[in-house]
Amino acid sequence: MADHQISPDEALHARLQQAQKFKEAGNQSYKEQHFRDAVRRYHRALLQLRGLEPSVLAPLQAFGALTPALTQAQEQELHNTQIDCYNNLAACLLHMEPVNYERVREYCLKVLLQQPENVKALYRAGVAFYHLRDYDQAHHYFTEAARREPKDVNVKRYLRLTETELSSYRQKQQQMYLGMFR
């Protein structure tokens, strides 16, 4: 029986498929509110995709590595899976105690780099910045989310909270400066 050597194209396709399966399993765990398991599965999906990006592959090809070029459809699938995983990781982390707001911010910013109009990522980034007490950035993200989803009650609520914090901060600043000149 001859050993069947899989081609680089087949290996690439298999990794994309495996990443998709991990993401779908993560989605199922999320629906069942098994957030730690979902996080694990999203991370495994991202590991499958690591090193497949064209920007990473080009320098490797100069060293003679057998890495096939991604088709446009494969590249789109890769980016969509990454974006979904990062967005879903942020959602999971917001349900886990203690919430790691730094990581939520990091994941949301990765999503927004690729999809600046992604309302869920805008909202979650705002939540992260709010809890990290960066109210200017929180306000920016909530304002963008509200512009795209004006009826979203959660966005409206956080936008009001952020505006209250900013107003309070500005009043304290004003009082401090007034005190300096008396």
Results as ranks from 00 to 15, higher is better:
residue 1 M to T: 14
residue 2 A to Y: 07
residue 3 D to H: 11
residue 3 D to C: 01
residue 6 I to R: 11
residue 7 S to N: 02
residue 8 P to I: 04
residue 11 A to M: 07
residue 15 R to T: 10
residue 20 Q to P: 00
residue 20 Q to H: 12
residue 21 K to A: 13
residue 23 K to Q: 07
residue 24 E to H: 12
residue 26 G to D: 08
residue 28 Q to M: 09
residue 28 Q to N: 14
residue 31 K to H: 08
residue 34 H to R: 15
residue 34 H to P: 04
residue 35 F to A: 03
residue 35 F to T: 02
residue 36 R to I: 09
residue 36 R to Q: 15
residue 38 A to E: 02
residue 46 L to D: 01
residue 50 R to Y: 06
residue 50 R to L: 00
residue 51 G to V: 07
residue 51 G to M: 05
residue 52 L to N: 05
residue 53 E to G: 14
residue 57 L to D: 08
residue 60 L to H: 10
residue 61 Q to F: 06
residue 61 Q to Y: 06
residue 61 Q to D: 08
residue 66 L to M: 07
residue 67 T to C: 12
residue 67 T to Q: 14
residue 69 A to T: 15
residue 73 A to I: 06
residue 75 E to T: 10
residue 76 Q to Y: 08
residue 77 E to C: 01
residue 79 H to M: 09
residue 81 T to G: 01
residue 81 T to V: 03
residue 84 D to G: 00
residue 87 N to S: 14
residue 87 N to Q: 05
residue 90 A to M: 01
residue 90 A to Y: 03
residue 92 C to W: 00
residue 93 L to N: 11
residue 95 H to P: 01
residue 96 M to F: 02
residue 97 E to A: 15
residue 100 N to W: 04
residue 103 R to M: 13
residue 103 R to F: 04
residue 106 E to N: 06
residue 107 Y to D: 13
residue 107 Y to V: 00
residue 108 C to W: 04
residue 108 C to K: 03
residue 110 K to Q: 11
residue 111 V to P: 00
residue 113 L to C: 05
residue 113 L to P: 00
residue 115 Q to V: 07
residue 117 E to M: 05
residue 120 K to E: 10
residue 125 A to C: 09
residue 127 V to S: 02
residue 133 R to K: 14
residue 134 D to E: 15
residue 136 D to W: 01
residue 136 D to S: 11
residue 138 A to Y: 09
residue 141 Y to W: 08
residue 141 Y to H: 07
residue 142 F to M: 10
residue 142 F to E: 09
residue 145 A to D: 04
residue 146 A to S: 14
residue 147 R to L: 09
residue 149 E to H: 08
residue 151 K to N: 14
residue 153 V to G: 14
residue 154 N to Q: 12
residue 154 N to Y: 11
residue 155 V to S: 05
residue 155 V to F: 02
residue 159 L to M: 09
residue 161 L to S: 10
residue 164 T to V: 10
residue 164 T to H: 02
residue 168 S to R: 12
residue 168 S to I: 00
residue 173 Q to V: 11
residue 173 Q to F: 11
residue 177 Y to L: 15
residue 180 M to Y: 15
residue 181 F to T: 15
